[in-house]
Design a protein around this nucleic acid. Sequence first.
DNA 1: GGGCTTTAATAACGGTCATTATGAAAAAGG
DNA 2: CCTTTTTCATAATGACCGTTATTAAAGCCC
Lengths: 206, 206
Amino acid sequence: MGRHREFDVEKVLDAAICVFWRKGYEGASYADLTEAAGVERPALYSAFGNKEALFRKALVRYYERYVDYVPAALQLPTAREVAAHLLQGAIDLTTRYPDHTGCLGIQGVLAGSDEAEPVRQALIEARAEAEAQLRQRFERAKAEGDLPETARPDTLAAFLMAVLHGMAVQAKAGFSRDTLEAVAEQALSTWPTDAREGSLRPKPQP
Amino acid sequence: MGRHREFDVEKVLDAAICVFWRKGYEGASYADLTEAAGVERPALYSAFGNKEALFRKALVRYYERYVDYVPAALQLPTAREVAAHLLQGAIDLTTRYPDHTGCLGIQGVLAGSDEAEPVRQALIEARAEAEAQLRQRFERAKAEGDLPETARPDTLAAFLMAVLHGMAVQAKAGFSRDTLEAVAEQALSTWPTDAREGSLRPKPQP
DNA sequence: GGGCTTTAATAACGGTCATTATGAAAAAGG
DNA sequence: CCTTTTTCATAATGACCGTTATTAAAGCCC
């Protein structure tokens, strides 16, 4: 009973992702969102709630569609492969689309009026959860003998997250893909290697 | 002739720095600025021009007063000391003041409505200039034999900037000083060392 | 001390923001 | 076909944005 919805909810979410990605949570206005989605304002409100709810749903879909390399990376056999795959995935994600570079998740953490506070907190928590998963993965690697006994999983996770975030900022500032790959290679050159396995890329300078 | 200005321009700039630092360029409103400065709106306009001009002047003072560790670092004798001093300076800057963490310069690069575009471009240029200075410093180090022949100054500069930016993001997300110092230590552990000089901190895990 | 100039403070300006009331259009049930 | 229910589109709401007239106060020169 009743009229049917005439637009595709997931397509609208994809359009919202692009807008938030390019302009951030605060920078994206409803005028931008409706124009990109081809849907009028009240339709967005009835389908998703207010702006914050729309952003959260877009963020969930963003993680599923664009940041799927993270769970994939965590299942790789060695800690070094996990790190390498994460770095490469981040480079792809932040440079693939010229009109919205960087990372949607990072955009919201920084920009900072008061009304964005709950969104910022949500992004901080998501980031902390990702780092926790990474740390646990490195602890497992240590237990498996994949990382040396002297390795500190928490430091490695924090360091890797710092490089990933820094590359996202640099991508937003217009860094080329080649430069970011050099950065990732330099970061990987610090990776602690167990005595049993040889380093894949022993020196950053060939 | 005429009435004297009753407020201190530099104190107002310092207050503006704190507001922009905490809320970013877009997130800071004139209501925030006037409240922090204790000065009414028209006084800000007559003394500094519009919001963008005020931000630019605050940014110059920010560099002078808070980021003075960068020129100091560039004059240190070895490339590794330069990098270590930059990392330590960034940690201090981004964690010293609990009410405005992170880096004022990074805040503006990301948040992204259209009217912030000139400010964003200015910050991107400033960031690029800093990286160029760093690269030139590392080229000099290479020429002086302080870095090995295989070292790539551009990569080292880009990598260091990525770690610095990543730490700024993490500081905004609430990272502790100790964690950031561990990250910096991990980043330094990759530093290419010439055969002649020993590494200061040869392994990140003690 | 009066005339002139500069600053200070109040209040208003147009514009845009997120959000929503209002009523027309469309689909399903009886 | 008519009623009911849901969605659609137009347009309005109050609040806040950056910016600026406007008016009152304060200091210097003659």
